[in-house]
Simulated assay, not measured.
Amino acid sequence: MEISSDPATHPGPSSLVALGDSFTEGMSDLRPDGSYRGWADLLAARLAARSPGFRYANLAVRGKLLGQIVDDQVAPAAAMRADVVTFVGGLNDVLRPRIDMDRVRALLDRAVGALAPGCGRLVLMHSPGRHGPLLDAGRPRMEELYAHLDTLAARHGAVVVDLYGAPVLGDPRLWDADRLHLTAGGHRRVAEAVWQALGLPAEEDWRAPLPPAAPPGWGGRRAADLRFARRHLAPWIGRRLTGRSSGDGRPAKRPELLPYDSGTEGLPR
């Protein structure tokens, strides 16, 4: 799908379907009303401003494992036959202490094989990663996951957006206090990365580093670590031990492919 830089001659994709977990749901990019926005909503808003009648669905639900995404989201997304489909999943799997990587690869094969034939452009991602106790243990499996995504992208003609390889997305200032989800600024950069991967004209350099900042002192770091352990790490471990998920009982964010009223959300500022 080649897209002209002139919206008058080629407005661009007329529909977008996003699949995934909390990353695609938009945590932790909070709106004033307490709902989550995130990179997929930002991308949809920009595409809607370019293409009258643009339609958008977001099937993502926080906490979902790859098997749940494949079972619950892939078939509905494939049936929508959108111009653009984004598929991001597997990080919740590789962060668990025990994982069957053969099963993960098989699930990815199933998902990409089902999605690629029916959409104009399939977008896969290497999710961003920063250093910390939750991500470092799973880093080798993350890289194995991304290597397999590259193989599938080459086989099916999908686009891969490499967020994992962007140093700026490892900057702690782009991550929420839970150290698992991006801030509004991080989501904005992801939206720009996908926008550019679709061949649309760049609005900013999403890889540009943040301005230098003085590192926090030892006391500040320790206090932040303690708050993180109490408010985020302990509950996360508790859910893993009991088999619960933050997404249990939650519906898809935007389950139907419907016209998207973008307003000014996601437009250049």
Rank of each mutant, 00 (worst) to 15 (best):
D102Y: 09
R103D: 12
R103H: 08
V104F: 07
V104K: 01
R105N: 13
A106E: 15
A106L: 12
L107A: 06
L108G: 00
D109N: 06
V112M: 08
G113E: 14
A114L: 15
A114N: 13
L115C: 01
A116F: 14
P117L: 09
P117S: 06
P117E: 12
G118I: 04
C119T: 15
G120A: 02
L122F: 13
V123C: 07
L124A: 00
L124E: 02
M125D: 03
M125A: 10
M125N: 03
S127D: 14
P128I: 08
P133M: 06
P133F: 03
L135H: 09
L135C: 04
L135K: 04
D136K: 02
R141N: 09
M142E: 10
E144D: 15
L145V: 06
Y146T: 00
H148K: 10
L149C: 06
D150Q: 05
A154D: 15
R155Q: 15
R155N: 06
G157P: 01
V159K: 00
V159N: 00
V159M: 01
V159S: 03
V160H: 01
V160R: 05
D162E: 11
D162L: 07
D162C: 06
D162T: 05
L163P: 06
Y164L: 03
V168F: 10
L169E: 00
G170L: 03
L174F: 03
W175S: 00
W175C: 00
A177K: 06
A177N: 07
L180K: 00
L180C: 05
H181T: 11
H181C: 12
H181K: 10
L182R: 02
L182Q: 11
T183Y: 04
T183N: 05
A184F: 08
G186Y: 00
G186V: 02
H187A: 07
H187L: 10
R188S: 12
R189V: 13
V190G: 01
A191D: 14
A191C: 12
A193G: 06
V194D: 02
Q196F: 12
A197D: 13
L198T: 15
G199S: 14
G199F: 14
L200E: 07
L200D: 04
L200A: 00
A202V: 14
A202K: 11
E204I: 12
R207K: 15
P209R: 07
P209F: 13
L210K: 09
P212N: 10
A213F: 02
P215I: 05
G217C: 07
G217D: 15
G219S: 13
R221P: 10
R222P: 03
R222D: 12
A223Y: 09
A224W: 09
D225Q: 15
D225R: 11
A229P: 01
R230V: 13
R230Y: 11
R231F: 06
R231Y: 04
